[in-house]
């Protein structure tokens, strides 16, 4: 069974991907298992760039198939911000509550509430990088609602729905989320090209 190394220290993400990819004959392993414990600096200017930086960081050290992801909230009225800076919009260390407060105050009085969540996955195999993207459009609510989810989930209401991500069950959210859509594209690609990609 071929291993794909995930450039993340988030064990929850690793397990989630492992469940999805295992039936296809691939294994997801976190880079910590290969002894890489360094924090990867996410200095990119775009989601794609950050995903690439992380995947390449792992690939350069392992020379084996590697994958990474990066996600962000892009608000139309703010020209796509906070985007790549979503996790640290209100500064470091990352604090979701502060981020939400800052975003809501920035959006106060703003009629255009359109926004999208976007995830980019980067996979590097045989010196070739493949990108997979998932997004979901919606609106920024005027106040936080719901207790589920994380990040900006409590102020993001997907198009055609009356609940924020934080008011939905995990299953409801996962059925439509930007991340699950990106993962879906990646899995479709592996199903079609897995044989070719096996090193």
């Amino acid at each position: 069974m071929t291993n794909i190394w995930f450039a993340s220290h988030n064990t929850h993400k690793i397990q989630e991907l492992q469940t999805l990819i295992h039936p296809l004959g691939w294994n997801i392993k976190g880079i910590e298992e290969a002894g890489i414990i360094d924090e990867i600096e996410e200095t990119g200017l775009t989601l794609q760039e950050n995903a690439l930086i992380k995947a390449k960081f792992a690939y350069d050290r392992l020379n084996k198939p590697c994958i990474s992801d990066d996600s962000g909230l892009e608000v139309s009225a703010l020209g796509g911000r906070p985007g790549v800076h979503s996790a640290r919009f209100a500064g470091l260390p990352p604090d979701s509550e502060k981020n939400i407060k800052l975003l809501l105050s920035t959006m106060k009085g703003q009629e255009n509430r359109k926004a999208q969540f976007r995830t980019v996955i980067c996979m590097i195999i045989n010196n070739t990088a493949y990108y997979f993207e998932g997004s979901i459009q919606g609106d920024i609510t005027s106040e936080a609602r719901g207790v589920g989810g994380f990040g900006y989930d409590s102020i993001f209401m997907p198009e055609g729905h009356q609940q924020t991500f934080a008011e939905m069950t995990i299953e409801q959210k996962n059925n439509m989320s930007h991340r699950s859509r990106a993962v879906g594209c990646w899995l479709d690609f592996l199903k079609e090209n897995g044989g070719f990609l096996n090193p």
């Binding site: 200017l45 775009t46 794609q48 930086i53 070739t128 990088a129 990108y131």
Partner: peptide, 18 residues
């Protein structure tokens, strides 16, 4: 070929910094 990196996906001008 070993001097070349191939990237497969949708790219816009804003993606060039990467």
């Amino acid at each position: 070929q070993d001097q070349t990196n191939m990237h497969i996906g949708i790219f816009g001008q804003e993606d060039i910094p990467q």
